[in-house]
Design a protein around this nucleic acid. Structure first.
Length: 272
DNA sequence: ACTGGCTCCTGAGGGC
DNA sequence: TGCCCTCAGGAGCCAG
């Protein structure tokens, strides 16, 4: 599923089709996503002009005068800009139709994603209010990560994936950032030194920024708003490369389960 | 306050 | 072809 780079790529792709345009209607075909799509949402969006298309963590925020639609892509979700009359495929759960004749169409086989609506400041919504800083913001740096990791026994990889520590870092980019920083994923977070925390924070920023630049990572079903895959897959150093030689030192890449997620690392480049 | 485990759901791929 | 198993870009929620 989409991590921050894929969500940001999606945001950039759908924004031109939405911004300043009037919503004709929201067509819902399947309300049963992670949470049921709220019953009031069609009437709240009908006739509204889209004022903003933002991202917070992995949430997309579509702002209108009546409130904000909060979209999450879950594990297998994607949004595409299509003509309203394009025939829907299986798992195309909703369309946001615009007066332009285009729509933003949500596709999500696993239905772990969500579509919610709030009339208040979206940052005050219960799902967003608890979120940590954005990884690409100045608030996230080595000093912050060092402080946030004190007294923690969890593996540093799990810490990176904790949205109360930093948002947007999912299973791919956590492994990739740890590789770039030379930190083993199993290292207890509290054992990070200041130097390594700084290297890791920098690696997180670097890997996310690079991935955004080339449209994110497509492993299976992710596509951007035009239906194109992302090209970061070819830049991956460790993710889904178990048994293959490390690109830096040729040692076979290892895989193990950590906090119920597949984790990849180079045992030579990433040492305690 | 932390930590680990479970859960939602569909589809792809491999072994027999 | 079919059946059964494992695994998959997330993350809220719960018990201990």
């Amino acid at each position: 599923m989409p991590e921050l780079p894929e969500v940001e790529t999606t945001r950039r792709g759908i924004a031109p089709a939405l911004l300043g345009h009037r919503v004709l209607e929201l067509k819902v075909r399947e309300r049963r996503l992670r949470w049921p799509i709220p019953a009031l949402i069609e009437s709240a969006l009908r006739g509204q002009i889209v004022r903003s298309v933002d991202r917070r963590a992995k949430y997309l925020l579509i702002g209108c005068d009546s409130g904000t639609a909060i979209v999450h892509l879950g594990m297998s979700g994607s949004l595409r800009v299509l003509d309203c009359d394009a025939p829907p495929r299986t798992h195309d759960h909703w369309d946001l139709c615009l007066e332009t004749g285009q729509c933003v169409r949500y596709h999500d086989p696993r239905r772990f994603g969500s579509l919610l609506f709030t009339r208040q400041d979206p940052d005050r919504h219960r799902l967003l209010a608890v979120l940590a800083p954005e990884p690409l913001s100045e608030a996230f740096d080595g000093a912050y990560l060092y402080a946030a990791s004190r007294g923690r026994s969890v593996a540093v990889k799990a810490l990176l994936m904790n949205s109360r520590i930093v948002v947007g870092v999912g299973n791919i980019y956590a492994s990739e950032a740890l590789f770039r920083a030379g930190v083993p994923p199993t290292l207890p977070a509290g054992r990070l030194t200041r130097e390594r925390a700084a290297a890791l924070a920098a690696a997180v920023k670097q890997v996310l920024a690079e991935a955004i630049r080339i449209g994110g990572t497509t492993l299976r079903d992710y596509v951007d708003a035009t239906g194109e895959p992302g090209y970061f897959r070819q830049e991956l150093n460790v993710y889904e490369r178990a048994g293959q030689p490390c690109r830096r030192c040729a040692t076979p890449i290892r895989r193990r389960e950590l906090a119920q997620r597949s984790t990849y690392w180079c045992p030579r480049c990433q040492r305690r």
